[in-house]
């Protein structure tokens, strides 16, 4: 298994982006990304431009669409059949989500606390959902310098945390909502996916199984070993509660450093958090930092904290691990 950086929310000239499909792929590669999801608004036509040759010359692309509906935007990836969004009402999104899942698709809620209509039409999530067990991921962080924006991303984190606390297994993603390549004045993020191979189907499998980490900059390192089960565990894994875990935690300060080093990242602390965001354990992010941690029943995840552009904030976090009694 290897971790690859991905951007899972992109647009081209097939909707309102400024990229052609080949230019989006080339630009993503230039930014050190190793996979993207193409998610044009309400259309699949850009997917017809994806070829093996383009993938070989640039990067692999997960096929997707962004349901740009009236009361929320939803990312639908790797879905076998097109499912129509145009007749969805605020009360029957569950049925649509089930239809997507029945067709093998992945469901991701995009920027759930973005400013909505009319400033950004339908951008804030206002659909009623009961079937959260059918939702694969939430774009917990989106936009520029995501950790600073409590209104947009802090509330998304709170929503995600609350769903995890209720027992739903939902992965986290970052979405740049990439429409054009522009000069960066602050850090963007990316989603790291743990994949067997760099193929779209492995990327989709990582999201489906919750093997994701979100960062504004350096790649988080979370090498976690379950000594009793004698195996390495990844986000999304289920392990027995009470099994002692050996954790090597850190941040890779080399990978993609050209993308983020100018924003002055200083990693300081890794925290293992559980229900309600409660801190269960923590360790300073010194070289070779190790942590012994025995998880209680429930979910836990790792949050990496430090400073970015002189501001104390979260830098990255993993999707949850699940410990069962």
């Amino acid at each position: 298994m290897k971790w690859i950086p991905a951007e899972l929310h992109t647009h081209t000239l097939h909707s309102d982006g400024r990229f052609t499909v080949p230019k989006l792929c080339a630009c993503a590669k230039r930014h050190g990304l190793e996979m993207i999801a193409l998610t044009d608004h309400n259309t699949l036509s850009g997917l017809d431009e994806l070829t093996d040759e383009l993938s070989r010359e640039t990067i692999p692309v997960i096929r997707g669409i962004e349901w740009t509906a009236y009361y929320g935007h939803m990312l639908v990836l790797d879905c076998g059949e097109y499912v129509d969004w145009r007749d969805v009402s605020q009360g029957d999104m569950d049925q649509k989500i089930r239809q997507i899942r029945a067709n093998g698709g992945l469901v991701g809620i995009a920027h759930p606390f973005a400013i909505g209509s009319p400033l950004c039409t339908g951008c804030c999530w206002e659909y009623e959902v009961s079937a959260w067990e059918q939702v694969n991921y939430i774009e917990v962080w989106s936009g520029e310098f995501p950790a600073l924006h409590r209104g947009r991303n802090g509330r998304a984190e709170d929503m995600w945390q609350s769903l995890l606390d209720r027992g739903f297994r939902i992965a986290a993603s970052y979405g740049r909502d990439w429409h054009a390549d522009a000069e960066d004045k602050a850090p963007w993020g990316c989603t790291y996916l743990a994949v067997e191979e760099s193929t779209p189907s492995c990327g989709a499998a990582a999201l489906r199984e919750g093997r994701t980490m979100v960062t504004m900059g350096p790649r988080p390192i979370a090498e976690i070993y379950d000594g009793r089960a004698q195996r390495e565990i990844y986000p999304g894994c289920t392990i027995p509660a009470g099994n002692p875990l050996s954790m090597r935690l850190g941040m890779d300060m080399e990978e993609r450093h050209g993308e983020w080093e100018r924003f002055h990242f200083i990693p300081e602390l890794a925290q293992v958090t559980g229900a309600g965001g409660r801190i269960l354990a923590e360790a300073r992010l010194d070289p070779g930092a190790h942590l012994q941690f025995t998880p209680p029943a429930g979910h836990f995840r790792i949050v990496y904290r430090g400073q970015v552009m002189g501001k104390p904030c979260a830098i990255a976090f993993t999707s949850p691990y699940y410990a069962e009694a």
Binding site: S15, D40, N42, S45, G46, D48, Y82, D84
Partner: peptide, 28 residues
């Protein structure tokens, strides 16, 4: 079959759809 959508801002648009080609947003 869903052929597509032109989700973009310009208030004047022209689209063409045929077997051989289609405007962006629509599938041939």
């Amino acid at each position: 079959r869903y052929i597509g959508c032109a989700h973009r801002h310009p208030p004047r648009q022209r689209h063409e759809i045929s077997a051989g080609s289609a405007s962006r947003g629509f599938r041939p």
